[in-house]
Amino acid sequence: MSERKDLIQDIVTIEASHLLESVSDIKSEGYRLGQACATKAEGAVEILYSFEKDETLKNFKVSIEDKDPEIHSISGIYWPAFIYENEMHDLFGITFRNLALDYGGHFFKIASETPWNPVEDRGAKPREASGKELKSAKTDKENKKDKVDKERKGK
């Protein structure tokens, strides 16, 4: 098979203070905004911005502290970024300064507040190994249900 451009991964970590500068530079080179997403890491929230031109990607990663995460918005340079930034605000609690179209936390109306970065978990490790406890919690509920069903069937 010929050249696989999709396997080229280019992820550059930059400082939050250099974000606007790097994004303006990349816009003048003709890249378009692909996506922006956030990930919870230990004591921090990492935001990944992806830009694309001619089927090659360039990604910027910015790490900010997760107690009261705040960063400048790039929607002044790329207007469509408001979609991703509003979502990150609702799910992670990140405040974006100078957001072009700000829904004020009501973009997604969800039952729990900032579910990916709950207030009590800020500063703690992300819940990566919690799958086991949650899985066994489900089995407990299922066990109880089985018990009730068995009693009903009179076994």
Binding site: G34, Q35, C37, T39, K40, W79, P80, F82, I83, Y84, P126, E128, A129, G131
Partner: peptide
């Protein structure tokens, strides 16, 4: 065995603006 993050950015999301 558990991923830390999976993020899917879908095309309609980008077409809303």
């Amino acid at each position: 065995k558990f991923l830390e993050r999976i993020r899917v950015r879908t095309p309609t999301n980008a077409n809303i603006p």
